[in-house]
Design a protein around this nucleic acid. Structure first.
Lengths: 122, 122
DNA sequence: TTAACATGCAACCAAAAGGTTGCTTATGGA
DNA sequence: TCCATAAGCAACCTTTTGGTTGCATGTTAA
């Protein structure tokens, strides 16, 4: 009864929709400098731009741009205190990303059973 | 005894080193088109380039380029069968990525306790 | 009030990314 | 054998990205 043609079946099944927001967050994390910034923020609570620039070997403006990228995908927030701009982390987006990866993994648990023959590692 | 100067303390503590490979994988996932490709591969086992191109609205060559990006960061593998090139997923890199995000989360569980006052969501 | 500090803004630049077109090569099937 | 199909390669184009320099602005602290 109404069996979909084999050709389009692949596209039909409960596909997990990635969504551009996911891509945006991934992209924001897809840069070594920004990952380092995150790791700095991770144990630094609220840090100023100048503070983040310090050991980077880059210009303050470069760091600023990177921070803006992180800010645009909500990974990072900032509040102003006096003359300085303090940045801190926002867990939400990365949490969601991890959820996405979990979904992928789950999807794979199934797929991997099916493959198995060719997988052979690496 | 030997208390490190407050200034450098932030950089000292067990910082989780991101590493360029992480950035590379994140970057590879930082594109809507490629995420869609992945989702296609997720339920399609082994799919040819032409097959992946089909509903994309892009050129075969564009898709090829994207696949090469995914291939370079090991997210995807391909084997040749006759005249077609069959692509399939490689779970490893994404697994590692999830581990990384888990690390981050754990790191945060600590950091969040410390923040708490400003967090207020969003 | 003034000098030093923390940022913001804009212009500019080189390299990388995302796509396209056109042409060649290799395979499989009728 | 010959044609249609699957893919590779190269050149080219436009936009984005990662970075810089120079100058203007707001804040502190002396």
């Amino acid at each position: 009864m109404s069996q979909p043609s084999r050709k389009s079946a692949r596209k039909q099944r409960h596909r997990l929709v990635p969504g551009p927001e996911h891509a945006a967050v991934f992209a924001a994390l897809g840069d070594q400098t920004r990952l380092v910034l995150l790791s700095q923020l991770m144990d630094g609570e609220h840090v100023s731009i100048a503070g983040l620039t310090e050991g980077s070997g880059l210009t303050r403006q470069a760091i600023t741009k990177h921070l803006r990228v992180l800010e645009k995908s909500r990974i990072v927030r900032c509040t102003r205190r006096g003359r300085e701009q303090l940045y801190s982390l926002n867990p939400k987006p990365l949490m969601e990303l991890r959820e996405y990866l979990d979904l992928v993994s789950r999807q794979w648990d199934g797929a991997l059973m099916r493959l198995k023959s060719l997988v052979e590692e690496r």
